[in-house]
Design a protein around this nucleic acid. Structure first.
Lengths: 152, 152
DNA sequence: ACAATTCCCTACTTATGAAGTCGGCATTTA
DNA sequence: TAAATGCCGACTTCATAAGTAGGGAATTGT
């Protein structure tokens, strides 16, 4: 299970990315909209800023905007910010490889081999799907703001 | 990252499954062989027994054997015993479904949709690959006991 | 100028789970 | 019948999740 922190981060990111044009969203507004504890969300948005994904403006009419375009921000990248390495074993992580302490031979470790398969499969998805993808692929029948305006 | 407990469970299971014929392996022997804390391993083997995967004999010349054949025990099943649900979100777990507390609409939740893809991919592997598969697919060049006897 | 608004930063709390440790009872067999 | 082995519950220690709390720093509408 992913942490609440990560889940909140995705909600916030999707909201900021979906905001019209370059309009800034305040932390208070996001918190209100999704029922996220405000002070907690502030920390999360800060983390996203430090990671170079969001930008912010202070003071009246301040808020958060995307720093990088939403189609360059993958789910995997965001998840790693809040959860650390996604690999099921330290010896499978590319970004922060660590040998298992009790490991005899990585090349013949059955556990490593099998979990490697599973990790490859999930990484393939997480590192290729972006925030923009997620917003674009609304299921048929679920009215977006746009459709709503046209058909409602 | 999976827990040490789960990792130890896999090591132990693979060892018991690989033991010649129906020969029983003691917890002490497994612990010694892989450097696992003995008392901790005992708890783990107990869990595997309660789950109906291992059987045990007590007293002198006791130990653990497979209760079910190794090709019916998937990595996913074992992992769930020690880690609980594998799903990244409660609303994606089939075995122990729970609606996200703040969820507005599962059908349109982008987070659910994207993590659903990732989970499907990884579950496909974990629930199909078995302990027997893992033992069978030794990489080329790594001598098994069998090969060793023949070629060494 | 100044007050309201918003982001920014640090420290703290509370609860939960991981990863064992410890002591001893129960059963089997040489 | 004693040694070996599994079985069981309670406890400890440390790290992390999930916030809470309080205030400082920048910006802007008036």
């Amino acid at each position: 299970m992913i942490s609440n922190k990560a889940k909140y981060a995705f909600r916030a990111l999707l909201a900021v990315a979906a905001a019209p044009d370059g309009e800034a969203l305040t932390s208070a507004e996001i918190a209100r909209r999704y029922g996220i504890p405000h002070k907690f969300l502030e920390q999360i948005l800060l983390d996203l800023k430090k990671a170079g994904i969001l930008d912010s403006r202070r003071g009246k009419s301040g808020g958060y905007v995307m720093l990088r375009p939403a189609d360059t921000v993958s789910f995997g990248e965001v998840l790693r910010i809040f959860e650390g390495p996604l690999a099921p074993l330290p010896c499978l992580s590319r970004q922060s490889y660590r040998r298992c302490e009790d490991c005899v031979s990585e090349a013949t470790c059955e556990i490593r081999r099998e979990f490697g398969r599973a990790y490859d499969a999930s990484r393939q998805v997480l590192d290729s799907r972006t925030i923009a993808d997620a917003l674009a692929s609304a299921p048929f029948g679920a009215p977006t703001e746009e459709k709503h305006r046209l058909t409602g």
